[in-house]
Design a protein around this nucleic acid. Structure first.
Lengths: 174, 174
DNA sequence: ATTGATCCTTACGTTCACGTAAGCTTCAGA
DNA sequence: TCTGAAGCTTACGTGAACGTAAGGATCAAT
């Protein structure tokens, strides 16, 4: 209504906890809980009682956390250790805006982040490898089962009921 | 009681719950609990109070269950639905020993098992794909971080401390 | 200034997946 | 036959990860 153009400041991006929850596919309670246990940083400069506000960056972080939890099945405690990366990277990004940060300090942060990334990668690779093996074994088993079915069908050739028309259609995904 | 030599029956393979637990890397309590919720079949013909006994086949089944739980992070309830395969396959194996089973029935069981296997495979493939994407993203991020470190090192060329000798050595465990 | 929707804190409740303890029974080996 | 280790049932306890409810505060829009 007011002719005043919205201050083109970097605000705008402010989400409330309910919005964040909806966007991330979770609940406000969960977000507060994650903050409580230290998985998410306490929203900046908040007087007790005031509403929490989140930026798009925080949404991404939350989604990343949820993804790691989902995919790796870790406890929140384990996750906390793992996602220290985000912490470091966030700090680096924040400091990149100030030019007066000692390169030495910046390097430290980056090296730290690299270390965390290496740990994450190792964990993920391991998981992926195990899953891959499981997949192979399942495929192998399925092959055997299908072969046995075919054998049965061949034996009862004509002599038996008109061969159940194989529901077949196994969706050849991937 | 009689000095009768141990009946050379097919026994021998009989494990007690403690052995089974140790072999599978879990506890008796967990095994009983799995049985309670229907994840493991109640050991055959057991009068209440008598010890449970397990065969090698049951060990394998338990290990399979634990592996699926670990890798996919499913609840026991979800697992129950998923591992109906084992049920069907066990039945097939049992029936394979009797030749008098109608081929039609045998076929039914096999088809059922195939269906369950398809579901498992789809789930595992999906998981594997997601993990793979995560892995790629992590690799990408790591590359960027490493590049930034190199850039920093290049900038401070000679002008700065003798370039921290890169702790490198990412402990190549496993 | 006044809402009504959303949020805040505090705190107790709940489900899952077992752990632990007690009292008794079974079983394998001497 | 006896015994002690391991098992059985029953039941209460526990930590993680939230759900839910109560009573009041905040905030955006009117």
């Amino acid at each position: 209504m007011p002719g005043a153009p919205k201050p083109a400041s970097s605000a705008q991006d402010q989400l409330r906890i309910g919005d964040l929850a909806k966007l991330a596919g979770t609940t406000p309670r969960t977000i507060r809980y994650y903050e409580e246990v230290g998985l998410l940083p306490e929203t900046v400069e908040r007087v007790s009682g005031a509403h929490r506000t989140y930026s798009h960056a925080e949404l991404e972080r939350l989604q990343e956390v949820m993804r790691l939890k989902e995919l790796l099945g870790l406890t929140l405690e384990e996750l906390k250790a793992l996602i220290a990366v985000e912490e470091a990277r966030a700090e680096v990004r924040a400091q990149l805006r100030q030019e007066d940060v000692a390169p030495a300090r910046r390097r430290e942060l980056l090296v730290e982040a690299r270390g965390h990334l290496d740990r994450q990668l190792e964990l993920v690779r391991h998981r992926a490898a195990e899953l891959s093996r499981l997949q192979d074994e399942l495929s192998e088993t399925r092959k055997r089962v299908r072969r046995k079915i075919r054998e049965l069908d061949a034996q009862s050739e004509g002599s038996f009921p008109p061969q159940p028309p194989l529901p077949a259609a196994v969706e050849g995904s991937s």
